[in-house]
Design a protein around this nucleic acid. Structure first.
Lengths: 115, 115
DNA sequence: GTCCTCGCTACATTTACTGTAGCAACACGC
DNA sequence: GCGTGTTGCTACAGTAAATGTAGCGAGGAC
């Protein structure tokens, strides 16, 4: 037990007591690794381990937690080949895909003395 | 001291040891309240307290931390009237603005038994 | 002066995440 | 059958981040 354990409990999500979808979504996406996972799955089906590797060797516990959340939300599904985005998930990715080009411009223009 | 205090230290950001702008950005946005704050500032200048209220009375400590990060990243600025998005910040918001309509559809279609 | 709001901080408690280890289940041969 | 390697997934101690409450100094109104 655990696959479902985390699911049914506190589904009212953190910063979104209103229940408005946009708030629920912003909250969901504002969790560590969520955006990154969607990003890494953008055009590949990855096994859980490949996904971990893609995500800078993130802890399996958290990757698993995020995957469960994303599956419950209907953005990700597990197939025989590994995890991949659902139609909804791909659509979600599309909505922030322009972020990539923005990030490039931002990285050049602004800040970034990273360390 | 403090306004800058948190700044210079561990600027190498969590899930982004690569330094690629997109990763840095995904990591920055993947922190609690970051997306929400940008969202709430999307078309209003808010004082720190108004912002807190808008964000479900989030803790001032974390709002302040996020604001500092967002200011360092060049997405938010503090004016006489309060906090507001910079040109860069507005641009960033634009890139995920479609999220709103997506969220509505998602909220209807998928999951959401929130409790 | 008092009163109120501003941006911002301190600190103890709670929650989330990390890192390492390891599970059962299934497939490879052999 | 055996061991070896993969899969998805879990346990748990340690650490880092977020919450909630309180309160600071500075400025404006009265």
């Amino acid at each position: 037990m655990a696959t479902q354990a985390r699911g049914s409990k506190q589904r009212s999500v953190r910063g979104s007591r209103t229940g408005r979808p946009i708030m629920v979504l912003l909250d969901l996406l504002g969790r560590r690794w969520t955006l990154r996972i969607i990003w890494e799955l953008r055009e590949a089906t990855l096994t859980s381990r490949a996904l971990r590797t893609a995500c800078d060797e993130a802890s399996p516990a958290i990757v698993q937690t995020r995957l469960t959340e994303l599956r419950e939300a209907g953005f990700v599904e597990l197939t025989g080949d590994g995890y991949r985005l659902t139609a909804f998930g791909r659509e979600l990715f599309q909505t922030f895909a322009p972020l990539h080009r923005f990030a490039e411009r931002w990285g050049k223009a602004s800040y970034h003395r990273v360390s």
